[in-house]
Design a protein around this nucleic acid. Structure first.
Lengths: 235, 235
DNA sequence: GACCACAGTATGGTCAGACCATACCGAAGC
DNA sequence: GCTTCGGTATGGTCTGACCATACTGTGGTC
């Protein structure tokens, strides 16, 4: 069984070729968010492929949160370049959680890591904290666990936003989306949310004071309070 | 302009419906990696939709790294459930970097965060370090910057693997993929890689000793050595 | 001149049916 | 037992058609 030096020819499906050409146009022509791609029929003709292949490429781009298609006519119709990495990441996580390729534990650990980092960054850069305060007020006014989690999510995503890193913020948002149901259950089990409130205030104040280390610690302890089962367990 | 309580009906495209049904089957029937989905024609008939719609749904699932399609006949043909979140994340990052929605700085900061965390986890759990040692040997034998970066990537991904968190590991792999070209350039600019080697040895030893704090510090300083422009710059 | 109703049209969404290349399966022949 | 070769199920692609949508422009009305 000698190595002949031959390698299998990479099979390129038509829609992958279309994809590659669109991507090339994006990078080379410097297309940016808001720009429109040619209409499907037009693109198909220009590339010499069928409309089906163009459509399959569009589905991929849409899945990755790079384009958004609108029917009808006019300036807003057609395929427009967008930037929605959040929903793509959310879909990714949800499906892989469903496939049992990922476990909730891994998602929460990742969230823990991100949130500590983001809180420290936000504190260090003295970021704007008005969104945090608004979310805090929303939690105080919440009447159900779902509502509470809604504003809690806003609070924690605002921390990620405040870090100034859009990639981190997008990952954070999709992580929270994936664990929404889990979080609601955790809040219900907890019953009393006053401990969480105190934690939130502590985090907010640490960020406002610019105390990065304290912000990190506060986040860590907050997560231990919110998900005690994951931190106290034997494993 | 009063709120009538009416909300626009969410337009559901056929392929989205197909997608939802497939996802439901995955979660409810407990389908897992290696299981096969029905053939496209069969699925189309069962769902009462056209094959095009089924195919568009397949493209989405394939993009998200959940299924893999093989032509031909036999046990391996057709749409098989897989788990490749890495390539999906890589595509996501590459496209959004191309769209200038993300900057390399954000990618590298994210990598910095992940790697510190992963090194600490690996040290704390006394993870197996044989992959790290192998990558180190590979770097020593490398004759070009590309080869060096290849094994360097393997080294750093092995740290993420050693953390035991598959989500973190997948993110790490896609981050490295996205910055490959950037890394090669950085190594070329650096010229001498002996500093990097010393850093790697220090990281490896810290993990082997179970010294989490030292591992974190070692990673941090290593990144400062590898990308001096991002850490010394004026802001 | 301002406004409104309506036909025209470009867009994505969907469908049906055909053909191709691939790769396994199995029977026929050696 | 082995090889050969046709059968067949699979995804990949193409064509052409029709639908729903939503803007555009025209022409009429006041």
């Amino acid at each position: 069984m000698e190595d002949t030096g031959w390698r299998p020819v990479k099979r390129t499906r038509t829609f992958e070729d279309v994809l590659a050409q669109i991507e090339r146009r994006i990078t080379e022509d410097g297309l940016t968010v808001g720009d429109r791609l040619p209409a499907e029929r037009q693109l198909a003709e220009q590339l010499g492929v069928s409309r089906s292949s163009v459509r399959e490429a569009m589905r991929v781009l849409e899945t990755l949160g790079v384009v958004s298609s609108q029917v009808g006519r006019g300036p807003d119709a057609g395929a427009v370049l967008t930037s929605r990495p959040d929903s793509a990441l959310t879909d990714l996580l949800r499906l892989h959680l469903g496939l049992a390729t990922l476990e909730m534990r891994e998602v929460i650990d990742t969230r823990h890591m991100i949130e500590q980092w983001a809180a420290a960054q936000a504190a260090a850069s003295r970021a704007d904290t008005s969104a945090l305060a608004a979310a805090l007020a929303g939690m105080d006014a919440a009447r159900t666990a779902e509502e509470f989690v809604e504003h809690d999510t806003a609070f924690h995503c605002a921390i990620a936003d405040a870090s100034g890193n859009r990639l981190i913020a997008a990952i954070m948002r999709s992580l929270r989306d994936s664990m929404r149901r889990y979080s609601v259950e955790a809040v219900r089990r907890l019953g009393d949310t006053s401990v969480l409130r105190a934690d939130h205030v502590r985090i907010l104040e640490a960020i406002e004071r610019g105390a990065a280390g304290e912000a990190t610690r506060a986040v860590s302890e907050h997560l231990a309070h919110a998900y005690p089962s994951l931190f106290a367990g034997p494993g």
